[in-house]
């Protein structure tokens, strides 16, 4: 009779310890997941010549369009070499166009060149991953208007023409990019 409370107390202590252990391990797992998430965001190396950006989670979902199911159009664009020339031309043209040069002055063009090439390559079904931010996040500070958005489309058409991309293939890319106005055009 005298021992009963001791057993009860011991049992109670064991239960408390178990609970504490479970809680601690759950917390630790959570913390580990959080730490991994954090390191994914914070330990992204800043490529040479680029300015750091606020942490974000990298994902092809950030590209803002579903990629084409095969690489036909990617090859019609001349693969990564063609895409690269088109993006370089587009950025050069945009930086000189009075309608939108202000937006490009306020942009890290080294980073834009890299991420835009990745984005177009990924969307056209090429062997690339998009590592940039999503369209809403990457454009939120620019206050872009519909006129500015259309100006960029016009300059992209000029760059694609210069590269000799067939008009129908040009339109296939534009069809993928056009709906992004919902995240990009803010006023």
């Amino acid at each position: 009779m005298k021992q009963a409370p001791t057993i009860k107390a011991a049992l109670y202590m064991k239960m408390v310890t178990l609970c504490a252990l479970v809680t601690a391990s759950v917390l630790m797992v959570n913390q580990t997941a959080f730490a991994i998430e954090l390191s994914k965001q914070q330990n992204q190396p800043v490529p040479a010549g680029e300015k750091p950006v606020d942490p974000y989670v990298q994902s092809n979902d950030n590209a803002g369009a579903t990629p084409m199911t095969d690489d036909t159009v990617y090859h019609q664009f001349g693969g990564m070499d063609g895409i690269s020339r088109i993006v370089d031309d587009l950025i050069d043209l945009s930086s000189k166009d009075e309608r939108i040069e202000g937006i490009f002055r306020a942009t890290d063009l080294v980073r834009l060149r890299r991420t835009l090439k990745e984005q177009i390559c990924y969307i056209l079904g090429g062997p690339c991953d998009y590592t940039g931010r999503d369209m809403k996040e990457s454009h939120k500070t620019h206050g872009i208007t519909m006129m500015e958005y259309n100006a960029l489309i016009e300059l992209l058409q000029v760059a694609m023409e210069k590269e000799g991309v067939a008009f129908r293939a040009q339109n296939k890319l534009l069809a993928k990019l056009a709906p992004m106005y919902r995240d990009i055009v803010l006023r």
């Binding site: 369009a65 534009l174 069809a175 993928k176 056009a178 709906p179 106005y181």
Partner: peptide, 9 residues
């Protein structure tokens, strides 16, 4: 609607 830009619907 937007005849020109709403290309995903």
């Amino acid at each position: 609607g937007n005849a020109v830009l709403d290309q995903d619907t």
